[in-house]
């Protein structure tokens, strides 16, 4: 039982390596992630938004909902730290 975690880690890693051998090679221009929706962003985005940085216009315009969610997550994280640590102090003072 002492080496159970090593066995589990090795088994998971071997399974993942076996699975990832079927992945498209890194740098393949015709891989599935690069051929579905991103050509539309690259070819039309600059015309539509007049912003040269593609990451910025996908982040803040086409996927704005996504970014709103992420900002909410960061806000929630800050509030959680506040409640965990500052809440403890007021608890001790009572």
């Amino acid at each position: 039982m002492r080496y159970l975690h090593l066995v589990v880690t090795t088994l998971t890693g071997l399974l993942l390596i076996m699975g990832s051998l079927g992945m498209p090679a890194t740098g393949d221009p015709d891989s599935p992630p690069s051929s579905h929706v991103s050509p539309r962003y690259i070819e039309q985005g600059y015309k539509e938004t007049a912003v040269p940085n593609m990451v910025t216009f996908v982040l803040a315009d086409y996927r704005s909902f996504d970014t709103l969610g992420e900002v909410t997550v960061i806000f929630t994280g800050a509030m959680a730290v506040l409640l965990i640590l500052r809440g403890a102090r007021s608890e001790a003072e009572e």
């Binding site: 007049a50 910025t56 803040a60 730290v81 506040l82 500052r86």
Partner: peptide, 28 residues
């Protein structure tokens, strides 16, 4: 308009990230 809207979004994100990281650091 879309460029200006994106700038406003970036400013809003910047305000939140700044304040959140300072807040976490302060609490720790």
């Amino acid at each position: 308009a879309r460029s200006v809207g994106m700038l406003l979004i970036e400013i809003a994100v910047g305000i939140t990230v700044t304040a959140a990281i300072i807040s976490i650091f302060h609490d720790l």
